[in-house]
Amino acid sequence: MSALLSARGLKIAFGGLKAADGVDLDVDDGEFLAIIGPNGAGKTTFINMATGYLRPQAGKISYAGRNILGMTPRQIVRLGIGRSFQLPQLFTEHTVLENAALAVAARDGIWSPFSPLLRPRFKQEAEELLDRFGLLSQAGQRANALNEGARKLTDIAMAVALRPRLLLMDEPTSGVASSDKMAVVEVLARVLRQSGVTAVFVEHDMEVVARFADRVAVWGQGRITALGPPDQVLNDPDVRREVIGLAPGEASHAAA
């Protein structure tokens, strides 16, 4: 498999903090890659750099063989890289359906001012999308009235509506009640597999990582300190000590 997204020698620092200090990372076409690591290590910064929100101070990023460094978020989205957010970025005064329809419209072009957003075609596609995410029953609610899990899913659904080839998700399960967590991720994984989307997700829950990731990258001190299949990486004694916070040998359901 060839690399869909390829980062080489990425460097960025905020003040004295080196969020990325020479990061090389390849995301293979079709895989689910999890990025784990302590808070503040630079995982979100990686997503911000790959989507054009931040510009690395050094290094290269290419997508499908094309250099995307210096492109704006808008241009990068148009190339097929979608993202979701740690804090869901929803249009809070719009309904869930309108949020989804707006994303559908954004892909299809919004410059047709004479027919409504909720025209049959957009409405139908938005409803189908929400249905796949199990959100259809809440379609009429205002986005700011949702619980955190539904907000996260709506946020991701809006990214999926753009039909990205690569989806970068920033902590898709943070803030989701732990009882809902697995259900949310199940839905997510199913939708993404169905649409053939390559996914990168930053995640703190090792159970989620173990279950859904094809590969795991460990981000520490601005570098990738380990990379490989979940059962290998999550059982690495160094990773367990530094990231997962377990003593080597201590039982964990992560490796189950």
Partner: peptide, 10 residues
């Protein structure tokens, strides 16, 4: 409400 999102929707 969420201008940044518009940019991330292209």
């Amino acid at each position: 409400t969420r201008e940044a999102r518009l940019e991330f929707m292209g």
